[in-house]
Design a protein around this nucleic acid. Structure first.
Length: 918
RNA sequence: GGGCCCUUAGCUCAGUUGGUCAGAGCACUGCGUUUACACCGCAGGUGUCAUCGGUUCGAGUCCGGUAGGGCCCA
């Protein structure tokens, strides 16, 4: 072998070598001068850097990379940036635990602050042990940690071989991302899509922030029904005469002071006479009406329930639709408010309230129950149940509902026309696989309110408004002061609005800054605008937007995908992308969704290092979009075997064709040798059949990839490649060597027999096609081979087209069936030796090959190659059907095979005479 | 409670519009020191296509029911 081509091929170590080379050559650099028609743009999901990457990420990002590499080879200029989602609550929590700190916005900034420790990963630090620091110090720590995380993420992605343009990374917290988020917000404010409202809001008491509908999840939690006595008020006694105590059942007796009504189903006969009359709440003695509403469930508890402001979202619906008063009792810390709500006025009521004021929900419930029991207002013991309770998906305490001023974006939750328009956008989008569209539609049609975007947190994009401070010192929320777009990004808590001076902050007649930040989705819903340069690079924006592809997980269709559609629809009146490719989950071998803990045991970098990146990519590419896949290291081993096979088969092809000899002197020689070899005519039927089959595969793989079906593309290429290695190479080996002795270097420019030239042309042509077909999935092994005898990168080479391959093959018909028939014949010749338990090198003195009639011509066409590959001296090819007729083949089977079980559609042998070694 | 996906060989999965669709690979067994490859090659058999009905000349394939698994939403 030459020095260029290693004596012993290996897939190990290719990652670092080629990553350096690609970086140096700018192989994946995006050319900004490209036009929209030339560009293929991908809206890659920015991973949350505060989490860790797991095998699921490797899986889905590989899918996207296969698309990127394919499109690049198709000649598109691929716009494939990578972002980091470092904005938001997950980062805050990680910083708290990693550095043992907590943000206290009232504290001053400390220059040169160093946290108590670093690296407290994994364990959570109790709030009491966290050092309180200023907001600016806290944000600096967030930035410091995310920068570290981002380095590690990039290293992993590079090792995996993602062909992103690493000069185009972005962060969702960067100033330019903030500016985009703020500009989009201000545009929305101008159009009325962004608005603020004082309304009941789902509230996480741990994080003390509002939470959006999309961030909710139900969790089954134990609770208990408490049966409480409501005494009739005067009007009820009058109306009903004898109606006594009304018993209701509730899981939240602590909300009794917030009770504003009782509700029953309008058709519930038990309570017909009560509607419109009043009862008095136990302990607090507040008169509340009994009202009918269809959402009341007659079969739950006693069929009549108390409405509190607010116990759950049904309470909110009742409160709104029935226009009930507001009597909140919980504050944003999750504790009972110090002051009793309006309505409680009796000394007994106020005294009872005093007993629970300031308590947590848990303690308040306990105390209320004690009081109810003492006064005989509760019947029996609490009845334990298990019921679904709303949680913030990242929280661990049940959500409360608190009335606060918040910012919203219209998303069709309150506007039927907008809802229809957004459903129509979903119909316009090409979901891969198509059934994922249903998830989008279900979500959009089921929205019950607009998108709440304000968060009472610290690390995020500030809502870019100020408010005038009125003479009484209160903010004038109705008249926000906005910055100009060219001043963005702004931090209203630090920056001063134009027309004001810093000393006017928070004083009457002055201004006050909005303290809330935006939810992280309010920024990440703008990834197309961020990466495409909407704000600051109009030429780039024109060349890349609307984008071609949004790859993402199915779990965030309702959040990321939908919110991106909402923003693009509002700002640009278009879809943000044409296609949405949805990857499935990785499942444990026991078919459960891969858990975080298990995902961490198998670290992605460990996998890549032990199997090789190409092997792991193969495993990922072998799973279809939208389909859950098993975590299967066996599949990675197969991928590794394929990559090894690519290297070894390539070594053979280049050696037997003589290209390796030329490449040994210089790459340029190798290139011209490959050109010279492939320029020779393909004269042999078997060679033509190989190329014809290959042309079919090129067409099938191309069609599959155009359809985002990387699995099919890989499968067809892989199947033919194994036929190429196992059968075709073996068949033409002898012919291609053209009499060269073992180890003898073949001169690719020297004259050779027509048959050898035909074989060599086919081998080198096929190799070039296979390498390019595999390049998107196995970028390292294919690039390695490409470098042995071709200039430039295989990843910038043109995707193969079938026409020239087919043209080279058209001298003889036969195609794939001929190749298959020759392979089958080779197989039965091998079987003779395998069953005789002798080496495949053993020669066959003579043999009869019984061939189904339809294949006879094919086998004859490949006869010389079969004789050579099978080491057969004389072979009689016989029609298998005719052979069944006694005497037609001239003799009875001598080897004892029985004709009556023979199937004339199956190729087989008879009368084999092996040469016994002396 | 509603929606979506899945159930094919021991395992992981293909099976386009109903008609060679009963398939691949892995695993397993046997053989083999081949002028690419031991991180290898060759040769082997394995299935009531979850289940029950229906449509059809014909059903893994289309329709309905049931059971199990997964996910999403109430």
């Amino acid at each position: 072998m030459t020095s260029r081509i290693p004596d012993k091929a290996t897939v190990d170590g290719l990652e670092d070598r080629w990553n350096e080379s690609w970086e140096a050559a700018g192989t994946y650099r995006f050319d900004e001068s490209a036009t929209r028609e030339q560009v293929y743009s991908i809206d890659t999901p920015p991973p949350t850097v505060s989490g860790s990457l797991h095998v699921g990420h490797v899986f889905s990002y590989t899918h996207t990379d296969v698309v990127a590499r394919y499109q690049r080879m198709q000649g598109r200029e691929v716009f494939y940036p990578m972002g980091w989602d470092d904005n938001g609550l997950p980062t805050e929590r990680r910083v708290q635990n990693y550095y043992g700190v907590r943000c206290d916005p009232t504290l001053p900034y400390v220059d040169g602050y160093e946290p108590p420790f670093a690296g407290g990963e994994g364990k959570s630090v109790k709030a009491a042990d966290q050092q309180p620091i200023s907001r600016r110090n806290f944000v600096e720590l967030c930035e410091r940690l995310t920068a570290e995380d981002e380095k590690q993420f990039e290293a992993l992605w590079r090792h995996l071989g993602l062909s992103v343009d690493w000069s185009r990374t972005y962060q969702t917290i960067s100033p330019s991302s903030q500016a985009v988020a703020q500009q989009a917000f201000l545009r929305g404010l101008g159009r009325g899509e962004c608005y603020q409202a004082e309304a009941p809001t789902l509230w996480d008491v741990t994080f003390r922030t509002a939470v959006a509908q999309a961030e909710l999840e139900d969790r089954e939690r134990p609770g208990a029904y408490h049966r409480l006595a409501f005494e009739p008020a005067a009007d009820m006694e009058e109306a009903t005469g004898s109606f006594g105590t009304v018993w209701i059942e509730t899981t939240r007796p602590e909300l009794l002071p917030a009770c504003v009504a009782l509700v029953a189903h309008p058709d519930d006969e038990r309570y017909q006479g009560l509607f419109g009359t009043h009862v008095r709440t136990p302990l607090f003695g507040v008169e509340v009406p009994v009202v009918p509403h269809h959402l009341a469930q007659p079969d739950k508890g006693s069929g009549i329930a108390m409405i509190c402001t607010f116990g759950d979202i049904t309470d909110v619906t009742w409160w709104r639709e029935l226009k009930l008063p507001t009597r909140p009792v919980l504050g944003w810390d999750g504790r009972v408010l110090p002051e009793a709500p309006a309505g409680i006025s009796s000394p007994e009521g106020l005294a009872a309230y005093g007993e629970i004021a300031g308590m947590t929900v848990f303690s308040a419930q306990k105390r209320i129950v004690e009081m109810l029991v003492e006064q005989g207002l509760m019947e029996g013991e609490p009845r334990p149940i298990s019921h679904p309770v709303k949680f913030f998906e990242k929280g661990d305490k049940p959500l409360e509902i608190v009335t606060t001023r918040q910012w919203y974006i219209r998303n069709g939750g309150t506007d039927a026309a907008l809802n229809d328009a957004l459903v129509a956008r979903g119909a316009e989008l090409d979901f891969v696989p198509d059934f994922m569209r249903v998830r989008y539609e279900n979500w959009v049609k089921g929205l019950t309110g607009d998108w709440l975007i304000s968060r009472q947190r610290f690390f995020g994009v500030p809502i870019p408004v100020w408010y005038p401070v009125l003479a009484d010192g209160s903010p004038d929320y109705d008249n926000p002061i906005v910055p100009s777009e060219d001043a963005l990004p702004v931090d209203p808590s630090a920056d001063v609005p134009s027309g004001y001076t810093a000393d006017q902050r928070d004083v009457p007649g002055g201004f006050t800054g909005e303290k809330d930040i935006m939810d992280t989705w309010a920024t990440s819903s703008l990834t197309p605008q961020i990466v495409c340069g909407w704000r600051d690079n109009p030429a780039l924006f024109a060349a890349t937007f609307p984008m071609d592809l949004r790859p993402q997980g199915q779990d965030i269709i309702r959040t990321w995908l939908f919110s991106t559609v909402v923003r693009s629809h509002a700002e640009h009146g278009t879809l943000p992308w044409k296609h949405a490719a949805i990857s499935g989950w990785i499942l444990d071998p026991d078919r459960k969704k891969m858990s975080k803990s298990k995902g961490n045991v198998v670290t992605p970098m460990g996998l890549l290092e032990s199997h090789g990146s190409d092997a792991v990519r193969y495993w990922a590419a072998a799973a279809r979009l939208g389909t859950d896949a098993a975590f299967d290291e066996g599949q990675m081993k197969i991928g590794r075997r394929l990559a090894m096979k690519v290297l070894n088969a390539s070594k053979f092809v280049l050696g037997a064709s003589g290209v390796a000899t030329a490449a040994g002197s210089s790459l340029a020689e190798g290139v011209s040798a490959a050109a010279a070899v492939t320029a020779k005519p393909v004269t042999e039927a078997l060679d033509a059949a190989m190329l014809s089959a290959l042309a079919d595969v090129v067409d099938a793989a191309t069609a599959a990839l155009d359809n985002y079906d990387h699995t099919k593309a890989l499968e067809v290429a892989e199947t033919l490649f194994w036929t190429f290695c196992d059968d075709y190479l073996e068949l033409v080996k002898t012919r291609a060597y053209d009499g060269a002795a073992p180890g003898e270097a073949i001169d690719p420019f020297a004259p050779c027999s027509e048959g050898a030239a035909s074989a060599r042309a086919t081998l080198v042509t096929a190799l070039g096609v296979f390498l390019r077909l595999f390049a998107p999935v196995l970028p390292f092994a294919t690039e390695e081979v490409w470098s042995w005898y071709q200039e430039g990168s295989v990843h910038r080479a043109a995707w193969p087209v079938s026409a020239p391959v087919r043209a080279a093959a058209d001298s003889t018909s036969g195609g794939a069936p001929l190749l298959a028939a020759a392979g089958e014949a080779l197989s039965v010749l091998r079987k003779v030796k395998s069953e005789a338990k002798v080496s495949q090198r053993t020669e066959i003195e003579s043999i009869d090959l019984l061939v189904p009639e339809a294949k006879v011509a094919f086998v004859r066409a490949a006869e010389p190659d079969l004789l050579a590959a099978g080491r057969v001296r004389t072979m009689q090819i016989v029609d298998a059907v005719a052979a069944l007729e006694p005497g037609v083949d001239g003799e009875a089977p001598e080897d004892g095979s029985v004709d009556e079980i023979a199937d004339p559609t199956v190729m087989r042998t008879e009368n084999a005479a092996l040469v016994t070694e002396a």
